[in-house]
Computed example of a mutant assay.
Amino acid sequence: MSRNPIVYSYTRAESHERAKLFRRGLRQSLADCVDPDIRRKIERIDRSAAERGALELAALHRVQAEARHDLAAAKATERTAPRADKAAARQARKAAEERVRLAERAVHKAEQS
């Protein structure tokens, strides 16, 4: 299903620092004298962003699994509900389906970024 993409989650400070280092490295590469410290700093920022992104993606997958479990429970409740409670059970199922859609959308968006 999923091919374990690398997800980066940069903080605002990391984004600014990485952009600044990239520009500095670009200027140095034009002068043909790149400081290896710049590359190490960028790689350090990328590693921390990848770790944070992996944690966030794992959390999104847990939310998605819980939403699917809740949907299955809501469907079972709807199927076994007495006639008087069918409308409320149907509303609960529809709300659970919406939560599953939102969770799947969030996981897909995170995996594509």
Rank of each mutant, 00 (worst) to 15 (best):
A89I: 07
A87N: 05
A87E: 05
R12D: 09
F22G: 06
A106H: 04
E97L: 11
D46A: 09
E43D: 11
R79D: 04
E98Y: 05
A74R: 01
A13C: 08
L60H: 04
L102W: 05
V7M: 06
R3N: 14
A72W: 02
K94A: 07
V107P: 00
R47T: 00
L26F: 12
A76G: 09
S15A: 13
Q91W: 07
R3C: 07
L55R: 14
G53I: 00
Q64F: 03
Y8W: 13
D46K: 13
R44E: 08
L102P: 01
S48Y: 13
R101S: 06
I6W: 10
I6H: 11
E98I: 09
D70M: 09
P5I: 15
R47W: 04
K109T: 11
S2H: 07
S15W: 06
R23V: 03
D70V: 00
L71M: 15
K20W: 14
Y8R: 12
A92K: 08
E104A: 04
I6M: 14
T80Y: 14
R52Y: 02
E104W: 05
A31N: 14
E97W: 11
A92C: 08
R101Q: 03
I42H: 01
Y8M: 10
R47P: 00
R68H: 09
E56H: 07
A65W: 13
E14Y: 08
A84T: 03
Y10C: 07
D46L: 02
M1E: 07
A106Y: 02
A89T: 04
S29G: 03
V63Q: 09
A50L: 04
R27F: 12
R23W: 02
I42W: 01
H108Y: 08
K94V: 15
A59S: 13
L102D: 08
R101F: 00
E111G: 03
A19F: 11
A88C: 08
A89F: 10
A31F: 12
Q112A: 15
A54G: 02
A65R: 08
K109F: 04
A84F: 09
R62T: 03
V107L: 01
E56I: 05
A84R: 12
E56G: 09
D35L: 11
H16G: 07
A96F: 02
N4D: 08
R18Y: 14
L57R: 00
L71R: 15
L60S: 13
P5K: 11
R23G: 06
F22Y: 15
R52M: 03
A72V: 01
R44F: 10
T77V: 11
R90G: 03
S48Q: 15
A31I: 00
M1Q: 09
E17W: 09
E104I: 01
V107N: 02
A50I: 12
A73C: 12
S113N: 15
P82M: 02
A96R: 01
I6P: 05
I45H: 14
R40P: 07
R105S: 10
A106V: 09
R83S: 03
Q112W: 11
A50V: 10
D46C: 10
S48T: 15
A72Q: 13
E17N: 07
K20T: 07
I42Q: 11
R68V: 01
A67P: 01
A59G: 05
Q112H: 15
A13H: 13
L55Q: 13
D32Q: 15
A65E: 14
R23C: 03
